[in-house]
Amino acid sequence: MTDDAQILIAQLMTHQTLSRENKLVKRALTDEAFRLDIDTRLAACGLKFLDNVYADNVTLALAREIEPKIFGSREVWQNNNLGLARDGVALLVVLWAMIILPKRERQEAHQHALEDQEDMFGKDKPLPRAEDASMGISYRALLADFGDKLGRKTRMDINLGQLNKLGFIERRGDMILEGPLLDLMMDTDTLRDRIINGALADIFHRPAPREAAIIPFPQADAQGEAQADAQADALSEPLPEQ
Rank of each mutant, 00 (worst) to 15 (best):
Met1Tyr: 03
Asp3Phe: 00
Asp4Leu: 07
Ile7Asn: 03
Ile9His: 09
Leu12Thr: 07
Thr14Leu: 11
Ser19Ala: 13
Asn22Ile: 05
Asn22Asp: 14
Asn22Arg: 06
Leu24Thr: 09
Ala28Lys: 05
Thr30Ser: 15
Asp31Ala: 11
Asp37Gly: 01
Arg41Gly: 13
Cys45Val: 04
Asp51Ser: 15
Val53Ile: 14
Tyr54Asn: 12
Tyr54Gly: 04
Leu60Lys: 05
Arg64Leu: 02
Ile66His: 01
Glu67Trp: 01
Phe71Thr: 11
Gly72Lys: 02
Glu75Thr: 14
Val76Lys: 08
Gln78Pro: 06
Asn80Gly: 06
Asn81Gln: 07
Asn81Cys: 10
Ala85Asp: 13
Val89His: 02
Leu91His: 02
Val93Arg: 02
Val94Asn: 01
Leu95Phe: 07
Trp96Asn: 10
Ala97His: 03
Met98Lys: 12
Ile99Trp: 01
Ile100Val: 15
Leu101Gly: 03
Glu105Lys: 12
Glu105Asp: 12
Ala109Cys: 03
His110Arg: 05
Glu118Met: 05
Glu118Ala: 10
Glu118Ser: 03
Asp119Lys: 02
Met120Ser: 14
Met120Glu: 11
Met120Ala: 12
Gly122Ile: 07
Lys123Glu: 14
Lys123Leu: 15
Asp124Ser: 08
Pro126Cys: 11
Pro128Lys: 00
Asp132His: 08
Met135Gln: 15
Met135Ser: 06
Gly136Ser: 00
Ile137Arg: 01
Tyr139Pro: 05
Tyr139Gln: 04
Tyr139Glu: 00
Leu142Asp: 03
Leu143Ala: 10
Ala144Ile: 01
Asp145His: 01
Asp148Ser: 11
Met156Ile: 08
Gln162Thr: 15
Gln162Tyr: 04
Gln162Cys: 01
Asn164Cys: 07
Leu166His: 04
Leu166Ile: 11
Gly167Ile: 08
Phe168Cys: 00
Asp174Arg: 00
Gly179Ala: 05
Asp183Pro: 08
Leu184Met: 13
Met185Gly: 12
Met185Trp: 12
Thr190Asn: 08
Arg192Tyr: 15
Arg192Pro: 06
Asp193Glu: 15
Leu200Trp: 10
Asp202Thr: 14
Phe204Pro: 10
Phe204Cys: 13
Phe204Tyr: 15
Arg206Gln: 13
Ala208Leu: 07
Arg210Tyr: 07
Arg210Trp: 05
Ile215Leu: 03
Pro216Tyr: 00
Pro216Phe: 00
Ala222Tyr: 03
Gln223Ile: 10
Gly224Lys: 08
Ala226Cys: 00
Ala226Asn: 05
Ala228Trp: 13
Ala228Gly: 07
Asp229Cys: 07
Gln231Phe: 12
Ala232Val: 15
Asp233Trp: 06
Ala234Cys: 05
Ala234Asp: 13
Ala234Val: 12
Gln242Tyr: 08
Gln242Arg: 04
